[in-house]
Design a protein around this nucleic acid. Sequence first.
DNA 1: TGTCCATATATAGACAATCTTAGTATTATG
DNA 2: CATAATACTAAGATTGTCTATATATGGACA
Lengths: 108, 108
Amino acid sequence: MNKNDLLQGTLELLILRVLVTGSRHGYGIAKRIEQVSGEAFIVQMGSLYPALNRLEAKALVTADWGKTDTGRRAKFYTLTKEGEARVDDERDVWDHYVSAINLVLKNA
Amino acid sequence: MNKNDLLQGTLELLILRVLVTGSRHGYGIAKRIEQVSGEAFIVQMGSLYPALNRLEAKALVTADWGKTDTGRRAKFYTLTKEGEARVDDERDVWDHYVSAINLVLKNA
DNA sequence: TGTCCATATATAGACAATCTTAGTATTATG
DNA sequence: CATAATACTAAGATTGTCTATATATGGACA
């Protein structure tokens, strides 16, 4: 695990989580994740868009072209109902996962 | 992320951690991880041995044939000096990783 | 006692998911 | 005009899963 690498699977959770606070375009999602993580995560564009497409394919987000603050064309992603529910699920999975890893790290 | 799946990269950390407590053979390592994690992780043989081979290739563990308690032939894995140092490093990486994810999960 | 199945143990190959790297394209702004 | 903002894609690497195979041993049972 390299320092700046995302563990497989966590990117989608982060994206979903960011979208809970409202629709954003891809680039904005990436920047938000970087900012909120204290630059711990640098989201590569080449990781981001495939992840967004997967989320769309799973109907967890929808995508619509719109305009950014600065009047630029951009695709805005919005959580679907199913996506909202999914955030909580995935968070639980994540928490359990971390607990289990920590159990091992502590106890043997 | 499926419930029983290991996130890529964490298996090696778990193996290294288990070996801190002494040499074990592959099967024993898997069983130990399962036990200590409260069966949260079921380590597939098809994941385990490739991971052990990678660790050996990186010179973080050594492997020697020996005998189990029950007199069966088995390959025992032992942490190298470098492997010992690596456990701590990887743990730090893991902790930072979790902190960063949690930052995002909490703050947006 | 002898046979058979379950468990312990190791390995290999095909396949899948998801990341990184690197490259392209468009438009607005300084 | 150069740079930043924005979107996308393809190739390659890593690392997991699933499945199958092989062998040795211990215990159940005829």
